[in-house]
């Protein structure tokens, strides 16, 4: 089992507010790591630490180590290279005000890919992977911002895949998407995890159960339990809190 993300004793503070308190976990290639927990438990902050977009929040203070592919992200010389290795999808879809084609080709172009054929192929593959190709293949030059919410979210996923990331992080991707599209994206994720690592932050407990291989349960900035999906959702998780949460007794 190849560990692609390793997190050791990670803590994050925003001023006095403690967003993440001393968590350690890992994610492996070929698996989906589900991160569940009630609102404000530090899940999004956790994702921001992986690709270091936490740096843009000037009040944040990070302790502990985050390793991607065995390398400490704090010690990497090019933060842009790091971000190119990680795809990010956020709760609300953001179609960039570019054409659909340019949306998907954005990251490769920024990374220096100029070859037209290569880009064409990449755009097609990514849009197919995110189950959007059939709907947009005839209008690749229309604006990405004019797509519907569910289509935009899939466009965001296509974009996140466009730089061939080793890791794909999704933060509550289904909030702005209808159930049918959610199911389609879930199928896509199952397909994708064969080749890459997926971190799925979700507040839908059943979604985590359906998709994840390992689950981390966070509550009030702390990691309550981190184990294989069957243990977390089984009859005997280590913590009573986990048992209560996955059965909907609180949260």
């Amino acid at each position: 089992m190849q560990k692609t993300i390793e997190i050791e004793n990670l803590s994050v503070n925003y001023g006095k507010h403690n967003a993440i308190d001393d968590i350690s976990l890992f994610a492996c290639k070929g698996e989906i790591l589900g991160v569940i927990g009630p609102a404000n438990s530090g899940k999004t902050t956790f994702l921001k630490c992986i690709n270091r977009t936490i740096d843009f929040t000037s009040t944040s203070k990070v302790n502990g180590t985050v390793k991607v592919g065995g390398e400490n992200v704090r010690e990497m010389t090019s933060v842009h290279d790091l971000r190119r290795r990680i795809g990010m999808v956020f709760p609300l879809p953001v179609g960039l005000p570019l054409t659909i084609y340019d949306n998907v080709a954005y990251a490769p172009r920024m990374a220096g890919v100029r070859d037209k054929d290569e880009l064409d192929e990449l755009v097609e593959t990514c849009l197919k992977q995110s189950a959007l190709w059939d709907e947009v293949k005839d209008r690749l030059d229309s604006l990405g911002t004019k797509l519907s919410g569910g289509q935009q979210q899939r466009l965001t996923i296509a974009r996140a895949l466009s730089h061939r990331p080793e890791i794909l992080c999704l933060d509550e991707f289904s909030i702005a998407v209808d159930p049918v599209t959610t199911m389609r994206i879930e199928d896509v994720l199952v397909e994708l995890k064969k080749e890459i690592t997926i971190v799925l932050v979700t507040n839908l407990v059943q979604q985590a159960r359906r998709l994840s291989d390992r689950v981390a349960f966070m509550n009030q900035s702390k990691l309550v339990e981190f184990d294989e999906v069957d243990t977390i959702f089984g009859e005997n998780p280590k913590e009573k809190l986990t048992f209560d949460y996955v059965r909907g007794y609180f949260g």
């Binding site: 490769p108 990374a111 220096g112 730089h163 061939r164 080749e195």
Partner: peptide, 8 residues
Amino acid sequence: MPLIPKTD
């Protein structure tokens, strides 16, 4: 899956 070729 081919990774994006790093520009030289």
